[in-house]
């Protein structure tokens, strides 16, 4: 934590106003939380929050990639659940199944993502529609698979280790995984042709196409990555709770979109930084945590949550007024 805090001013100077606002809101939430309870600023609590945030962080990373293209992935809920359920299901097939559980879960998510990608990139179906449809199909498949009940398979030891273990003392594995995935995403977005293409397509797909980028392949890869990361988030969640559940992904759709958008990534695509998404994820997680520490019932949480997101978007997520 100290390392990040020490370097923050340097980031602040370079970052855009939305990212600064998001970090300011995090500090504000921490301040409000510390007024409510002293333990809010303890390292244990903050690490625990970071661990919870890393599940959302992994999912939001994929969402960010898709949003940068100017698209959206609404198949997150059942990609998460499919990843979790399929990984747990594979564990029931002997030692080979246990070994392949995590890749298999992720692969199922990638498959969902590829269907999304084909629909968006090659069939030119609006992303919000095709992803809603694949979400429904994934749900249907899982309902048939589980027979409508909560699945009985449980997570493998490897999944539990990834989600709850400590490879480095005092740093939860989930946080390390998020850091690795985040670093890979930052590298891909800022240092590779793929990243340039993503920003280019987000700004104007027509121009990107005319400058020789295979825009359709880039879009498809982005959706596949998003599906895979959602499923990986599901695998981690299954490891955390030691089993998969029917509606485990429902709680991740709005937060993942909100985290990306609150972090200053334009919902229209082409603009945004990963640092903003990190800020958005931590912001959302802290907000959820404070609401649950205050023992706010589910109803109040939903209302505050939706209101805060609309309010923050109205502050800095508005589309330009110019027209005509």
């Amino acid at each position: 934590m100290n390392g990040i805090a020490g370097r923050m001013p340097k980031f602040l100077r370079r970052a855009d106003p939305a990212v600064v606002t998001a970090f300011a809101c995090i500090l504000l939430l921490l301040f409000l939380g510390s007024l409510y309870s002293r333990s809010f600023l303890s390292p244990e609590y903050l690490l625990q929050q970071l661990k919870v945030a890393s599940f959302l962080g992994v999912i939001a990373t994929g969402m960010m990639l898709v949003i940068l293209l100017g698209q959206i992935d609404l198949s997150v809920p059942w990609s998460v659940a499919t990843g979790a359920m399929m990984a747990s299901a594979a564990a029931a097939y002997g030692p080979v199944g246990v070994a392949l559980a995590i890749p298999f879960g992720i692969l199922c998510g990638v498959a969902i993502g590829i269907v999304n990608g084909i629909g968006v990139a090659y069939l030119r179906i609006p992303s919000m529609i095709i992803t809603l449809a694949t979400n429904a199909v994934a749900q249907g498949l899982m309902v048939v698979y589980t027979g409508g009940f909560s699945p009985q398979d449980s997570a493998t030891p490897a999944m539990r280790y990834l989600a709850t273990g400590f490879a480095i003392p005092a740093v939860p594995n989930a946080v390390i995984i998020w850091a690795l995935i985040g670093a890979a995403m930052v590298f891909a977005l800022t240092r590779t042709g793929f990243g340039r293409a993503v920003y280019g397509i987000g700004n104007r797909e027509r121009a990107a196409y005319l400058s020789g980028i295979d825009t359709r392949r880039v879009v498809m890869v982005a959706f596949a990555v998003s599906g895979g990361l959602s499923a990986f988030g599901g695998v981690l969640l299954a490891g955390y709770a030691s089993k998969a559940a029917q509606s485990m992904g429902d709680a991740y759709l709005l937060p993942s979109i909100a985290a990306v958008v609150l972090g200053g990534t334009s919902i229209l695509g082409g603009r945004g930084s990963y640092l903003g998404t990190v800020a958005g994820v931590i912001l959302i997680t802290l907000l959820q945590s404070i609401l649950s520490v205050m023992q706010m019932p589910e109803a109040g949480r939903q209302i505050i949550y939706g209101t805060v997101i609309v309010a923050m978007l109205l502050l800095y997520g508005r589309a330009p007024a110019s027209r005509g």
Binding site: I267, L268, V310, L313, A319
Partner: peptide, 13 residues
């Protein structure tokens, strides 16, 4: 705001 994000959020409310 974009209808899609705005209505997901108001839907939560």
């Amino acid at each position: 705001l974009q209808p899609i994000v705005a209505t997901i959020a108001t839907g939560a409310v």
